[in-house]
Computed example of a mutant assay.
Amino acid sequence: MSKVLFITGASSGIGAATARAAVDAGHKVALVARSEDKLNDLVTELGEDHAIALPCDVTDVSAQTTAFEAAATRFGQIDAVFANAGLGATGKGTEGGDIDNFRTMIDVNIFALTVTCKLAIAHLKQSKGHLLLTGSRAAHATLPGSVYGATKWFVRGYAENLHAELAEQGVRVTNINPGMVDTPFFDEGKPDALRPEDVAGAVMYALGQPDRVVIPSLQIYPMR
């Protein structure tokens, strides 16, 4: 059955790979990110019948609201929301970190994520849909002083709280927790890391479960 997926952080990496996997599976996608050029290129690749580009800074509440409205208007409904937008650290730990980077990470990885989830709920209650959040292996380990890791601990706990809130309303919640992924997130290649397509496969697996099944948390780590 064809579904409509709303994906943040969709212009590259995990988000773009998930969009490709979704369209390959017969679904339609609403693509949200700041990079309009990259989104438009992805729409051209996927086809305008299957994808819509919605340039948006996810920390801007009104912009996210407009993006959700545009997606619902274009496709009629929203069946799944993948809150995937995220930002990494520019320095190591708290002592070696940058304060401005702390603020931006918290704005994107926590505040913007909660906005995406809040705006998603009305649509997903109607469709009995699925809310997915990008967490991290960093939320299953202690990384000394890591503000980034702490933001992902927030995602882990928040996903569990959302499950408790939404389960009786027929909305599934899944926290996708990848280990290191070879994406533009890093300044240099990571040959032993996961590929974005690996994480996209985990997203599609969670989405493909019968309505009676929910996978609250899905870990996907590289072998080395």
Rank of each mutant, 00 (worst) to 15 (best):
S11P: 00
V32S: 03
A72G: 14
M223G: 01
G86P: 01
G47Y: 10
E45Y: 05
A89C: 04
A200N: 06
G201I: 05
Q64K: 09
F68R: 08
A83D: 08
N84M: 08
L218P: 03
L162E: 03
G15F: 09
A164C: 02
A200E: 09
N40C: 04
P184N: 04
F185I: 13
K38L: 12
L131A: 06
G9H: 09
N40A: 12
C56D: 02
A72Y: 00
A138P: 02
V199C: 07
F186I: 04
L87R: 13
N101Y: 02
N175E: 09
E160D: 14
K3V: 07
Q64Y: 06
D49A: 15
G88A: 15
L162W: 01
D182E: 01
P210S: 07
Q169V: 00
E160W: 02
A159N: 03
F82S: 01
L113I: 06
E188Y: 09
N109P: 07
T104Q: 13
I176D: 09
F185K: 02
A70I: 00
P222A: 04
V108P: 04
G47N: 07
H163G: 13
D107R: 09
V199E: 13
K92P: 02
M223V: 14
T66R: 14
A19D: 11
L162I: 04
A80Y: 05
A70G: 06
P222V: 01
M180R: 06
P144E: 15
C117N: 11
T174N: 03
M180P: 05
P191E: 13
I176V: 15
S146L: 12
I220Y: 10
Q219Y: 05
A33N: 00
A70C: 00
R20F: 11
A21R: 14
T174D: 03
I121Q: 15
T134L: 14
K152G: 02
T134I: 12
A19V: 01
E48I: 00
E197R: 07
D24W: 00
N175C: 14
A122W: 03
E48D: 14
V81D: 14
V171G: 04
G15H: 07
V199N: 05
G88I: 11
V213K: 03
M204A: 08
A122H: 13
A85S: 12
E197Y: 00
T59H: 06
A120R: 10
V173C: 05
L133V: 04
Y158H: 02
S62P: 00
K152N: 05
G47A: 12
A70Y: 00
G189W: 01
T142V: 15
E48H: 11
A202V: 14
V214S: 13
A138Y: 02
M1T: 08
V23A: 07
Q77Y: 07
S11R: 06
I220E: 06
